[in-house]
Amino acid sequence: MRKSWWKILCVALLVYTIIGGLLFPVPALALIHESIRNLYFHVPMWFGMMTLFTVSLVYAIRYLRSGNLKDDIYSVQFVNIGLLFGALGLITGMEWANYTWGEPWSNDPKQLGAALSMLSYFAYLALRGAISDYDKRAKISAVYNIFAFALMIPFLWILPSLADSLHPGSGGNTGFNTYDLDNHMRMVFYPAVIGWILLGVWITSLTIRLNLIEKKDILNEDIS
C-alpha cells in the first residue's frame, strides 16, 4: 500500500476524468442537457462509498477472527472515508436533482435508501463512541459493521429497483447506457470510477497510518 504507482495512476485517471468529462461529446437529452456530465463525478462517489464499506467489512471480519486491534483501526477508517464519499454523493445528488427534478429532495427511493444506509453507518460511529473499553468496542462494532453492510444492500440495490424511482436505470426509467450508443461516456465513466475509488483508498491509507502512530501504545500492549 505504500508503493506510489497506484497513486500516480489515480491522479492520471482523475485528470483524464476532469478533462474528458468536461470536453468529450455526450448524448443530447431533454431536461438533463449538459448536466449528464455529472455522471463522471456524482456516481463514482457511490461506487467509492460501497467499495470502502466493503473493505471495512472485510477488516471487521478479520478482526473477529484475529482479535488484532490493527484490523479494527483499518475497519473504522474505511467507514470514515466511506461516509465522506457518501456525504459528497448525497450533496452532489441534491445539487443535480435541484436542476433536473426541480427540488433537491424528492423522497426518491434511491435517495432515501442512500440516506438510511448512511445513517446506519453513522450509528456505527456513535456505537463506537459510547464504549470506552478498546477490545469491547472493537468486538461490538465489528459485529455491528456486518449488520450495517447487510442493511446497505437492500437499501441501495433491492428496494430502489422495486419502487418507482426518478433515478435513471430503475423503476422503468432507462439508464444512461441506452443513450450512450457510441460508448463515448463509458470511455470516461469507467476510468472515473477507478480513479475516485483509488483516491478514497489513498486518503484512507493516510488516516490509517496516522491512527496507527497515534495508538501505538495500545497496539504495543496488544502485541506483548
Binding site: I18, I19, L22, L23, A28, A30, L31, I32, H33, E34
Partner: peptide, 17 residues
Amino acid sequence: PEMADTFRSSGKIYVVL
C-alpha cells in the same frame, strides 16, 4: 434538447478546466 453548443466557441471553458 438544448445543449451547450456554443460552450467551447469562445475558448473560455478551458479557463474553467
